[in-house]
Nucleic acid binder design. Structure first.
Length: 109
DNA sequence: TGAATGACTTCGG
DNA sequence: CCCGAAGCCATTC
């Protein structure tokens, strides 16, 4: 592990924790907010590393169209969707309904 | 060192 | 928005 990655991970955690209840955001939005707009994949990678950290609501982070691309990396295949649904987020075919409505932009914080 | 991989994004059709 | 292809970048082998 390099110190640069740790810094990046920390930033991702910070942003992810600030996602309000029942709201979601995208990897690209977080990456852009961190100044690494071209490293959206690394955000997802950071989420994978944060899977062991329950303080990071990784289930509130999806791709740009609101699809739960990372649900397969979660503990169990339906946990991610269940968590979102329990927060009032409606899911249809692995995709968030009214995604644009509940989308939370980290830059607004 | 180089090649492959991926919880993504953007572009052209 | 759907589809295919290319780009990006840190990590892994």
């Amino acid at each position: 592990m390099t110190k640069t990655s740790e810094n990046f991970f920390e930033k991702v955690y910070e942003v992810a924790r600030q996602i309000p209840y029942g709201r979601v955001t995208s990897y690209g939005a977080i990456a852009k907010y961190l100044g690494a707009a071209r490293s959206a994949r690394m955000v997802g990678w950071a989420m994978n590393a944060s899977s062991n950290d329950d303080t990071v609501p990784a289930h509130r982070v999806v791709n740009r169209i609101g699809v739960l691309t990372g649900k397969h990396h979660f503990q169990g295949t339906s946990l991610m969707q269940q968590l979102l649904e329990s927060e009032g987020v409606e899911i249809k075919e692995h995709k968030i309904v009214n995604f644009e409505t509940i989308f939370w932009d980290p830059a607004k914080q």
